[in-house]
Design a protein around this nucleic acid. Structure first.
Length: 481
RNA sequence: CGGGGUGUAGCGCAGCCCGGUUAGCGCGCCUGCUUCGGGAGCAGGAGGUCCCCGGUUCAAAUCCGGGCACCCCGACCA
């Protein structure tokens, strides 16, 4: 036995398990700078695949990429009252440059609304300039009290879309369009089910009129806010005087939206599927989808096995599969199995002398199951195998979410649930801030979203879970990351 | 910011209470040979500011004081 350090069992300590999975899979490492993280190639590879998929969806819907500066004049943040109030406590500020005190301190962007809309004011003159649909891939800095790899770090990577529209309705449609894209990405690529809906006043983005979000339930039954889409109304347009002339010659402020997902998604991916062996990654986002492990005893066997393995590797790669042949000498096959399982490679192909003789390979899935496949069928079989794994992961995560969701909770059930197993609790809500605060004080749970119609209960709850007054809406409570 | 824990080789740790001369162990790493269908074996080898600063002492990984960093649990937080 030459076991590497084991992974803390998930059931024993979820946080330590999470860290262990990241270390075992070599996704990230701690940095010399407090609260910051280093994203290693296997983690960055997941992010790159996420970027590629999302970027394509943004472009399909008419968005273009641009890049705005990291530094924002401090005065810009202050132009929108709610915005500055929300972000000031967590900004990093540069006061010196080139050895001299700066005329005006520069904020390291915690988000880019202010600098972007200051430029939009210049670019937008006429209704013919609208809509303006831009996105940027960038890093941002928020000075966090307590950090966790991928989930909350001082610096992180994200995309932020910023759009300007002629009408309130168009901006609302954009906000909803993006929320739908996020949901589709999380379900179809991450195999992570989400609940979408509206944020309450206290939880919405600082400076927004409305914030919509995707909320996912992790394996410890806490909710992760995985993506947000904000309808900014004319708040920033007024602050930065972003105006356009209508066809009728009137001067109007534009309507803005902003929306983002971050490297936090990688954390969500990890916490949705992984197990005590290590990372479990859905094939569509796996930097390595297939690892080929050759097996031999003698030198003759080695050359024939490697010949076949190399051939399969080339064919799979040519067909678009992200494949890797593990030809390392001196490691037994079993050791390689454990290593690649820990790293979350969805499919392992074992090829030994017996397989070569039978013209087949053993195809083993990270999530369980192993079966021989004829060499001639390997390439054509992979899309189906990937699709099955992908949908099995989504089905398992969906089942887990449903098992940990309670509909029409009573006050006592809400308390018991949050003191006990956790999960999503659906119930009536009067809409009052006081109930929101009391629930949080008593249970640590917050309103994650006021769910969209497709997630709502039938029939709609009549009374507020907390105060018993008539419910004006339904809410989803959970303890959040 | 409060409570708890940890800093000794790349990783995981022992040694510290009770100071002592070449600071150990497992894994990993390098070389060679034998191995290889679920974590290989043998032989040889490389690798250390014992977190930092100061103090006590003939002598400090070990005792004392101060600091720093990281992790966990809270508090806080789009």
């Amino acid at each position: 036995m030459s076991q590497e350090r084991g992974i803390t069992p998930r059931a024993e300590n979820f946080s330590e398990w999470y860290n262990d999975v990241i270390m075992r899979a070599e996704l990230a490492d701690y940095s010399p700078v407090r609260g910051c993280m280093v994203i290693r190639p296997r983690g960055y590879g997941i992010w790159e695949l996420m970027q590629r998929a999302l970027d394509e969806m943004f472009k399909e819907t008419g968005h273009e990429n641009a890049y705005f500066p990291l530094f924002i004049p401090q005065s810009f943040l202050a132009k929108e009252a709610q915005h500055v109030e929300g972000f000031s406590p967590e900004t990093a500020v540069v006061t010196q440059g080139g050895g001299k005190e700066l005329e005006e301190p520069l904020v390291v962007r915690p988000t880019s609304e202010t600098i972007i809309y200051s430029l939009y004011a210049k670019w937008i003159q006429s209704y013919r300039d609208l809509p303006l649909l831009l996105n940027q891939w960038a890093n941002i800095v928020r000075w966090e009290m307590r950090t966790r790899l991928f989930l909350r770090t001082t610096e992180f990577l994200w995309q932020e879309g910023h759009t300007a529209h002629a009408t309130d309705r168009e901006a609302e449609e954009e906000t909803r369009l993006i929320l739908g894209i996020y949901r589709r990405f999380m379900e179809e690529w991450m195999a992570m089910p989400v609940i979408t809906g509206l944020k309450t006043e206290s939880e919405k983005f600082a400076g927004a009129v409305r914030t919509y979000a995707c909320e996912a339930l992790m394996q410890d039954n806490r909710a992760l806010q995985a993506g947000t889409s904000h309808h900014l109304g004319q708040n920033f347009a007024k602050a930065f005087e972003v105006q356009y002339q209508t066809a009728e010659g009137e001067l109007e402020h534009v309507w803005n939206t902003s929306w983002g997902v971050s490297t936090r998604l990688v954390g969500g991916l990890i916490m949705s599927h992984s197990d005590d062996t290590g990372l479990v990654c859905p094939p569509r986002l796996a930097p390595t989808q297939v690892v080929i492990v050759p097996i031999w005893k003698s030198d003759e066997q080695r050359s024939s096995v490697m010949g076949v393995a190399g051939q399969i590797e080339r064919e799979l790669r040519a067909s678009g599969v992200r494949v890797r042949l593990d030809a390392r000498d001196g490691l037994k096959p079993g050791a390689k199995y454990y290593e690649w399982e820990g790293k979350g490679v969805p499919v392992r192909m074992e090829i030994g002398p017996r397989d070569v003789a039978d013209q087949q390979a053993m195809v083993a899935r990270r999530s369980g199951g192993k079966a021989p496949v004829k060499l001639a069928d390997l390439v054509s079989a992979m899309p189906r195998v990937f699709a099955e794994i992908q949908s099995a992961l989504f089905a398992a995560a969906t089942e887990r979410q449903e098992e940990n969701t309670v509909r029409s909770v009573t006050k006592q059930q809400l308390i018991d649930l949050m003191e006990g197993p956790g999960g999503f609790a659906f119930g009536g809500y009067c809409g009052g801030e006081r109930c929101e605060i009391e629930v949080k004080d008593r249970t640590k749970a917050t309103v994650r979203v006021l769910p969209d119609p497709e997630f709502r209960s039938e029939p709609a709850p009549a009374a507020c879970v907390w105060c018993g007054e008539p419910a004006v809406t339904e809410a989803v409570w959970a303890k959040a990351y």
